[in-house]
C-alpha cells in the first residue's frame, strides 16, 4: 500500500498489457512485431532484395542498357538463356532493341522505386501538413481544404495524372509532380481524421495550458500520435504510386523512352506477346508484381500491428 502497486496480473489494466513492452520506444516495438510476423518478414525480404538490386544495378547488371554502344540490334528478342556473339549470357532474354532484359529490369526498378518513394514522400509532407492545419485550425480553413480534398478524390487518380502529364510533358520530375498532385489528398484526409481525435485528448489541453506554442503542439504532440495510420497509408501509397507510374509509362505518356521504367519495358514487349516472345513483358511484369506484393505485405502487417484495437 505504500506505493502505487502496479496491478501486473490484471488483464483489464492497461499497465498489465503494456508490461511486456517495457522501456522500449514505440518505434522499436513496432519493428520487433513486424519482424516476428512471417508474412511481413517475407515482404521485407522481397522489398529489401529488390531495393538493393536497384541500388547496385550498375555493379550487378552485366550490361548498361542505356549505353547504346553496348547494345547489338542483332541480339534482339533472344529467348531466356541465350548467349550473344560477344559471349554475354542473357539470363532472361533480350528485348526488341537487343537489350539484356535482366539489366533493363534492374535499371527499370531504380526508376520505379525512385519515382514511387519520392512522390509518396513529397505527397506525405504536403498532405500531412495541410491535414494537420485543417484539423487544428478548424472552421473555414478546414471547410475549404476538405472541399478541395473531396473534389480531388472524386476524380480517378489516373485521369488527373493523364491531364497533368498532357500539360506538363514527359520526364521523371513531371511524373513525380503528377503523382504528388494525385496523392496528397489521401494523406490530408487520413491525418485530419486522426488529428481531430487526438486534438480532443487531454494531453493536448495539457500542452495548451502550459502555453506551449501552436507549432510545438502540432508537431511534437499531435503529429507523432497520428503517425501510425499515416505510415500504413504511406506504405500502401508507395505501391500505388509505382503502379500508377507503370500504368502511365505503359500508356506511353509517363517516362521518355530514354529512361525506361518497368511500365515501359512491359509496354515494349506487349506487341510481341502474341507472337510467343512472352519474356519481354513477363519478366518486368514479374518484378513489378513482386515489388508491389512485397510492399503490400509490409503495409498489411503494419496495419494490424498499429491498430489500437489489436488484442494484447
Amino acid at each position: 500500500m505504500s506505493n502505487d502497486a502496479n496491478p501486473g496480473n490484471s488483464v483489464h489494466s492497461r499497465d498489465g498489457a503494456d508490461a511486456e513492452r517495457a522501456s522500449r520506444s514505440p518505434f522499436r516495438a513496432t519493428l520487433g512485431a513486424l519482424l516476428r510476423d512471417r508474412l511481413a518478414l517475407t515482404g521485407i525480404i522481397i522489398v529489401t532484395l529488390l531495393v538493393l538490386a536497384a541500388l547496385f544495378a550498375p555493379l550487378i547488371a552485366p550490361q548498361n542498357p542505356y549505353d547504346l554502344a553496348q547494345l547489338d540490334i542483332m541480339d534482339n528478342r533472344l529467348p531466356p538463356g541465350s548467349e550473344s556473339m560477344s559471349g554475354l549470357y542473357y539470363l532472361i532474354g533480350t528485348d526488341d532493341q537487343g537489350r539484356d532484359l535482366f539489366s533493363a529490369i534492374l535499371y527499370g526498378l531504380r526508376t520505379s522505386i525512385i519515382v514511387g518513394i519520392s512522390s509518396a514522400a513529397i505527397a506525405l509532407v504536403i498532405g500531412a501538413s495541410l491535414g494537420l492545419l485543417s484539423a487544428y485550425a478548424g472552421g473555414k480553413t478546414d471547410a475549404i481544404l476538405m472541399r478541395i480534398v473531396d473534389i480531388q478524390l472524386s476524380f480517378p487518380a489516373i485521369l488527373i495524372a493523364l491531364i497533368f502529364l498532357a500539360i506538363l510533358g514527359q520526364g521523371v520530375d513531371k511524373i513525380i509532380l503528377a503523382l504528388v498532385i494525385t496523392q496528397w489528398a489521401y494523406y490530408a484526409r487520413t491525418i485530419r481524421g486522426s488529428a481531430l481525435v487526438e486534438r480532443r485528448r487531454s494531453y493536448v489541453d495539457a500542452a495548451r495550458s502550459m502555453a506551449l506554442p501552436d507549432r510545438s503542439i502540432l508537431f511534437r504532440h499531435i503529429l507523432p500520435n497520428c503517425l501510425p495510420p499515416l505510415i500504413v497509408v504511406a506504405t500502401m501509397r508507395v505501391a500505388y504510386a509505382i503502379m500508377l507510374e507503370a500504368t502511365l509509362s505503359f500508356l506511353g505518356i509517363g517516362l521518355p523512352v530514354t529512361e525506361p521504367s518497368l511500365g515501359l519495358l512491359i509496354s515494349n514487349g506487349f506487341e510481341y506477346l502474341l507472337s510467343g516472345d512472352y519474356w519481354i513483358s513477363f519478366f518486368p511484369g514479374l518484378a513489378l508484381l513482386l515489388l508491389i506484393v512485397g510492399i503490400n505485405l509490409i503495409g498489411d502487417a503494419l496495419r494490424d500491428i498499429l491498430n489500437p484495437r489489436r488484442e494484447g
Binding site: 500542452a207 504532440h221 500520435n225
Partner: peptide, 12 residues
C-alpha cells in the same frame, strides 16, 4: 486532468 492515461503524450 482526470484521465492520467490520456493527459500524457504516449509518444514522449
Amino acid at each position: 486532468f482526470q484521465d492520467p492515461f490520456e493527459s500524457l503524450n504516449p509518444r514522449m
